[in-house]
Design a protein around this nucleic acid. Structure first.
Length: 553
RNA sequence: UGGGUUAUUGUGUAAAGGUAGCACUACAGAUUUUGAUUCUGUCUGUCUAGGUUCGAAUCCUAGUAACCCAACCA
């Protein structure tokens, strides 16, 4: 049994490079475009890039790929930085592709001087037409053979603002017959009279992704530029530019992006969910965004562990959401404070317990003794969970039922003597007797019961709002379904319970706290909490063997 | 029908010609003052067809399937 963990293919490449002395240390980068919020898919890339440099003693830059001013904004820059920090990573340098606009412009001039770039006056339709199709070679543009002087003059004029958007573009002169569509004289600069979030109005022409990304990598001496599979065709162009420009040879490697069941990940779809009001915002706890997961109560560690477990490879994947939830529960189980809350209350009266008496009972805060304990008030009238009582018990039922005995968590064993119903036939109140010698921790009653239920003392209970979340989408793979993914939205993805009863200690809950409402799930405080009004989000349910038993019938 | 990439249990991911392993899920059981946790166990897999080899997930040949590429997006 070997303890050594096998390497993923990128680690293998790096270890080889290091062993061969190709590099002394590595530099990676995480290059988001600041045009949206980060989601769980990005966290795979973040954990990979930062994890690699940590493992191999290098560094990782955060670089904003801000080459398209019309879609980008500083609001996104800030949220992206916050999310990366929250995940637990620190970048060595914060860079922007826009930092390199001057340099990039010079690179373009270099290409012009080498007769490897030309200004094209064609419209975008004309360019598309001459581009050909994957099975048909393209045709050369009539502007392809302009002189160096003419191209240079035109390019400078483009920069100076002489032309309108779309009037001219700069193209790399490569091969209109290439089987790689991206090599058919790709556009590398386009005119956009637009305000840029960092460079303001200094520029009216901006480099395309392909003319910015590789060169930015090169400028930063990135050794391993890691991106997702759909950029594979770009690698040829990436290498072509580096070689023609004779600059530092960064290398691009591609891995398969994360897909997850019951989740959509594309920016476009997430934007629709927000804009069309299916969720309350980017940080709605049902969203797969980092801020949504954070608000829901996910921990950074659980997400990092998840990214570690899913691995890195090149094949398309669809990861079970249950693996993410496993990682979450694994962490929460360690750190969550155990408390009691009754979400769907039913009154229980202990007939042989003294009226008006309050007893403070000691209860452990968690399975680990280091978490300490607290005192919970107990009295004659309690709230219990409605679902913990069955008038006619099912088989294998070991909660409350007429004549049955259960333990009240951290308190006494009780026996149900009778119950009352209201006019509608709903159970209104349960009458029980308790066994004084069965007190938790000093039980001499000799009675053993199978069930233990949670409770809150009626006269000591505080109240709170609770929000229960279910998956937003009903389909395992909404992207693969025919029709609109929104047809698969789960109409019951959010259940709000306006008033639940919680044990009094919960009044002091803080935003950092993680709780397990015993037998009900993991919860945390939502940002909508105000002074007099607590709001809890259910982060994730507990595993529930009983509900499975019920389903089996 | 051009080019590229990928195929290992329900889902992921290992095995670099030599025992198909690990995790999640599912199922069964033990423990349990949470039907949680913990512990034990069980199930199912090398895309197909040929070939090379003492031996193939791995090498060869031919197929098949999925995904990506024709934005002045990244």
């Amino acid at each position: 049994m070997s303890e050594e963990k096998s390497l993923n293919f990128i680690e293998e490449i790096i270890e080889n490079d290091l062993a061969e002395g190709k590099y002394q240390s590595i530099i990676t980068r995480f290059p988001p475009e600041p045009n949206g919020y980060l989601h769980i898919g990005h966290s795979k890339s973040i954990c990979l890039n930062f994890g690699l440099s940590q493992k191999y003693g290098g560094s990782t830059n955060l670089r904003f790929d801000d080459t398209n001013p019309v879609t980008e904004d500083t609001e996104y820059v800030e949220s992206i930085k916050e999310d990366i920090k929250w995940l637990g990573f620190n970048w060595s340098n914060e860079y922007y592709a826009s930092d390199y606009f001057d340099q990039l412009f010079e690179y373009a001039v270099t290409l012009i001087n080498k007769e490897l770039a030309y200004v094209d006056d064609s419209s975008s339709e004309e360019i598309a037409l001459l581009k050909g199709t994957p099975t048909e070679a393209g045709k050369e543009s009539p502007y392809r053979n302009r002189t160096i002087e003419e191209n240079y003059k035109l390019f400078i004029e483009m920069k100076s603002g002489k032309y309108k958007d779309g009037e001219k573009v700069l193209r790399a002169k490569i091969d209109m017959a290439s089987s790689n569509m991206l090599m058919r004289d790709p556009i590398i600069y386009r005119i956009k009279h637009a305000h840029h979030h960092r460079t303001g109005n200094k520029w009216c022409l901006y480099p395309m992704y392909d003319f910015a990304h590789g060169q930015s990598d090169s400028i930063e001496n990135i050794t391993h530029s890691i991106c997702t599979l759909e950029f594979i065709p770009h690698r040829e162009l990436y290498d072509w530019l580096i070689s023609k420009l004779e600059i530092y040879p960064s290398h691009q490697y591609e891995f398969a992006r994360l897909n997850m069941t019951y989740t959509v990940m594309s920016k476009r779809k997430l934007l629709q969910l927000v804009n069309e009001g299916f969720v309350s915002g980017w940080d709605d706890p049902r969203m797969p965004t980092i801020c949504g997961l954070r608000r829901k109560g996910y921990t950074p560690l659980s997400i990092r562990n998840f990214c570690e477990k899913i691995g890195v490879a090149k094949r398309e994947n669809l990861i079970d959401l249950s693996l993410l939830e496993f990682c979450l529960r694994e962490d929460l189980n360690q750190i969550a404070k155990r408390v009691m809350a009754v979400l769907d209350p039913l009154k229980l009266v202990i007939t042989n317990y003294e009226d008006g008496k309050t007893e403070l009972l000691n209860s452990e805060n968690g399975p680990d003794e280091s978490m300490g304990s607290r005192e919970i008030p107990f009295s004659k009238e309690l709230w219990i969970e409605r679902e913990d009582f069955m008038e006619e018990p099912a088989k294998k039922w070991f909660r409350l039922a007429p004549g049955a005995m259960v333990r009240l968590k951290s308190a006494y064993i009780i026996q149900c003597d009778s119950f009352e119903k209201d006019h509608n036939g709903n159970v209104r109140v349960i009458h029980c007797t308790y066994f004084p010698d069965s007190k938790s921790g000093q039980d001499t009653s000799g009675i053993s019961v199978k069930g233990t239920i949670h409770w809150v003392s009626v006269m000591h209970a505080a109240t709170a709002e609770v929000r229960l979340y279910d998956r937003l989408l009903k389909s395992e793979n909404p992207a693969a379904e025919e029709g609109d993914f929104k047809d698969y939205i789960n109409p019951n993805s959010l259940e709000i319970i306006k008033e639940v009863y919680i044990e009094p200690s919960l009044s002091n809950a803080t935003f950092e706290d993680r709780f397990q409402f015993i037998r009900k799930g993991y919860f945390c405080l939502d940002k909508d909490t105000t002074n007099g009004h607590l709001v809890f989000n259910r982060t994730v349910t507990l595993k529930d063997a009983w509900s499975k038993e019920v389903k089996k019938g």
